[in-house]
Design a binder for these strands. Structure first.
Lengths: 540, 540
DNA sequence: CACTACACGTGAGGC
DNA sequence: TGCCTCACGTGTAGT
């Protein structure tokens, strides 16, 4: 996968010429030498990572999609040997040419993207490093630029949003206002703002981080987060092994900022959730500003507190995490100072986060807790079923079922090349059309192949004959078959397996048939049976 | 399609020997000479008729499926030149071996069916015509027997249930009790009873009739009928061109019988619908008994009457059909006496039925009428949304959407061979797995084919070499290539097109490559260019 | 306003 | 019983 095949030979040469061999190999090595098997074997990533990313981008916004790009940051070892978050894989929507892409979305996208990368590299070699310069290029949008530039980023420890998200195990949702704000603690956020993005999200996935960006102001939503996680095979926070992290969503870094300004308008639409999760009592959230490039960083590992809005509260007494190094207040101080890769590796940090969770509240408690807590988003649909609260596990199960089903739908979208409309029905229709087409094509090729070599053809080579006769102490084998599809290789293999000593061979071609004549030295019976079995024909 | 390919050569011979040529050709002619393009071009039937039938059988009972068999009766011209309903196509579930069929459902089913047909023919040739005799055969169940025997049936005019259903445009639902009753007016019903069926249904589809049978007592249901119709591409009766027939469902021939006996138990579960539709006031139903084999036949063309249970009743005043030959009572006397094909063709009867509808109430009225009438089934789901009635078109649209989607699901099930579970999610999973498998297989074969003929292969035959040299007034051509995929036929064709005179040829095989040596008499240059162009290789 | 497409909560059936 | 799947009615967003 990926970078190695990402370039054609000449493109590779060109890229090397532009970047220098060292930088190029560094990029390639990032992918190859990443900890794929070791750290992301829990179901995240994997062979179809591209597919998943593409799914996520191509999805409708209502299902957690609609993003301009998706980047999978992966733990890798940097050139200096430190563990960093580096480019794993990514998918960028073609922003220039509308929705009507057509053609194979995977390969087509790849090729376009490759072209863009090259163009960009050209620009970089001649121009300045300033993004604003690049933005002026008409062929590359700022968003694409941002995406492509991401290949060269890597973040040590808890640096930048991605690193912080991984270290904390909690997502970071950066709204439009925060993107431009210097206090958000993410250089990428600042660049994203320059690129025209209005929302970026960093979601930790076990040992990697998924970054998403949108040109629209996307309000923070539990639904979206849930969809994103489940897109990567992670179960919903309510009941999954990934829920070993205490799932406290909605921890915007600066909810105050989010509330005050423009985002309030957009979040007014969907504010049901944010309001609920933000006003939650006992919700310890970040109080100390974070500087760009990884200054002091401190946030909570709040372990539940049930949602007060939720009418049902199965026995979830809040038991504070008994872990020794976790303060009773439920906060963990990661204390990441400075932007330099330092003593504690990022992976260790991630491990710490995991440990604090694993040894935190019991699994069952964490589950029920998360259930009560996270299960309020419900973007659409009817209102909370006036008053009644009897079935609440049911709605959860149903939600998961729906999610799983949609998950499959997206997966199906990824493998079917020509999708007419984004409908579910149309998708299914296209899928079955595609399947029948494939089946038919495969049948054709099989028939064709049968006609070619004589594996299953007692019919296609009607005038096929094998004669074996002894002459002058040698054996003469004559194989006759039509011009097309004569099993020469089979004959030769048969002769060889029968350990015959081929003295001479001849090939005579008539108008539409070929006559092989082999003169071999071998016991006749063996040649005959061997040939016969090899050709699956009866001799005469 | 169908019978022509249905038999292999030997099987065909055997069938002819058993049946006689005349009977055999009659069966074949039924399909070939049917009015496919002319009468069933409205969307019913078509190329994927088998698929549809199979779908219908394989579906879950909740979606109108679960049938043991499905037979598509088609208007055809009988040997005597009359128009009759004859065997169009059919699908029969393998009743012997459970659910875990596995393998390609279409082809596998075909083959099994073919085997059964042969067995049955053997039996017929030696045994008696009595079904009970056949039923004793352990290899063929009664149900299968019934199904297979159907190929030999044809019904003129309004004879038997199928003919009646077509003539009236209304379905006939024969419950368990009616099956055994001689008054039901269907010989097939009687046979079905013998075969062990407890429910048979005849649904008219434009110019054909779909017959379904189940070993269970299936209560009559609007939902099921709707699903069946939409499975054949017909829109729901509420809004479709097929709704030119006034869609009065629920006209069991003998509701009284149905009420009295065993079916009451099963219908007690789903009785919401039957009760509603049976108790409908103004519902004229058949009052005269019908004899087996097409005795007197009389039923109503009742044009609506809104469902009194339905809370919503948009302006649907009952206007009796103004058609002249329709009695004011709403009944039409078809007067089919005797089982013989007689003067008026069945098609004319069907046309009459259509006319009586077309000139009946206005289209819009018919639609709204049907909407209010038929739209109550709702097998599951919440209760009628206490009181409110504002959104009612919405629910209808949503229903249709769901129906369409499910339709696609069934279609998908039909084309995906290995379905692990009957889940929607599993189905999708299997489908995408199947697609990727097909894609991969196809890629493999393409690569293989590229390796075989040398059209696009500069890569697969790396050690390929062509040497052309002149020796002693003759030309020696040496072609070397790997053992697999050597283009011998291409070489020979190239030599021939260059009009070379092949004097001698040799084939030497090394461990993994083949060396052809041709000694030809021809201008050297021509041989070279010809060979090169044929092999698409550069020579050295 | 129309119509389409979707997700949600919910009741029901099946194991 | 409990879980899982499904379909239905309904609210909601997009066009």
């Amino acid at each position: 996968m990926v970078v190695a095949e990402f370039w054609s030979d000449e493109e590779r040469k060109m890229a090397i010429a532009v970047l220098g061999r060292e930088a190029f190999e560094y990029i390639c090595a990032r992918r190859v030498a990443s900890f794929d098997g070791q750290l992301t074997a829990v179901g995240v990533g994997g062979a179809d990572l591209q597919t998943k990313l593409q799914d996520l981008v191509e999805r409708p916004p209502s299902a957690g999609g609609g993003w301009a790009y998706a980047i999978f940051w992966q733990i890798a070892r940097s050139a200096s040997g430190d563990l960093v978050l580096g480019w794993g894989d990514g998918h960028c929507r073609e922003l220039g040419d509308g929705e009507d892409a057509g053609g194979d979305p995977v390969d087509g996208g790849r090729q376009k993207m490759r072209k863009r990368v090259l163009e960009w590299l050209h620009l970089l070699s001649g121009g300045s490093d300033d993004e604003n310069c690049a933005l002026r290029l008409d062929r590359i949008t700022g968003a694409e630029m941002y995406f492509l530039a991401s290949m060269y980023f890597s973040f040590p420890k808890g640096v930048d949003a991605a690193g912080k998200a991984l270290a904390s195990g909690k997502h970071i949702w950066i709204s439009e206002a925060e993107l431009a704000s210097p206090v958000v603690g993410s250089m990428r956020a600042f660049l994203a703002r320059s690129a025209g993005f209005r929302t970026t999200v960093f979601v930790p996935l076990d040992a990697s981080v998924l970054e998403l960006g949108s040109l629209d102001a996307v309000p923070e939503s539990f639904e979206v987060l849930r969809s994103i996680r489940s897109a990567f095979g992670l179960e919903n926070p309510t009941s999954g092994h990934i829920a070993k992290h205490p799932r406290i969503f909605g921890n915007d870094l600066y909810p105050d900022v989010d509330r005050v300004n423009g985002n309030a308008a957009s979040s007014a639409k969907t504010q049901k959730r944010p309001s609920e999760m933000i006003k939650k009592p006992g919700d310890h959230r970040l109080r100390n500003p974070i500087g760009i490039g990884g200054t002091l960083l401190q946030w909570n590992h709040n372990l539940s507190k049930c949602d007060p809005v939720s009418p049902v509260q199965p026995q979830q007494l809040h038991r504070p995490p008994p872990q020794s190094f976790v303060p009773p207040s439920g906060q963990i101080d990661f204390g990441a100072v400075g932007g330099n890769p330092a003593s504690a590796s990022l992976r260790e940090l991630a491990m710490d986060a995991d440990l604090s969770d694993v040894e935190g509240p019991s699994k069952e408690q964490a589950e029920t807790t998360a259930t009560a807590e996270v299960r309020r988003p419900r973007k659409r649909g009817r209102k909370p079923a006036n008053g009644r609260d009897e079935p609440l596990n049911h709605v959860e199960a149903e939600r998961q079922r729906r999610e799983k089903l949609n998950q499959k739908f997206y997966a199906l979208r990824a493998v079917v090349p020509n999708i007419s409309k984004m409908d579910k029905a149309s998708l299914l229709g296209d899928a079955i059309a595609y399947i029948t087409e494939l089946q038919q094509k495969l049948k054709e090729m099989e028939a064709e192949r049968e006609a070619w070599d004589g594996t299953t053809s007692t019919d296609h080579r009607r005038p096929n004959q094998i004669e074996v006769e002894t002459a002058e102490g040698e054996v003469v084998v004559r194989v006759s078959c039509p011009l097309e599809g004569h099993p020469l290789s089979k004959v030769i293999r048969a002769l060889r397996t029968s350990q015959s000593d081929v003295v001479d061979t001849k090939v005579d071609a008539n108008s539409d048939s070929v006559l092989h004549t082999f003169i071999v030295r071998s016991p006749e019976q063996e040649v005959r049976t061997s040939l016969i079995s090899a050709l699956a024909l009866e001799s005469n």
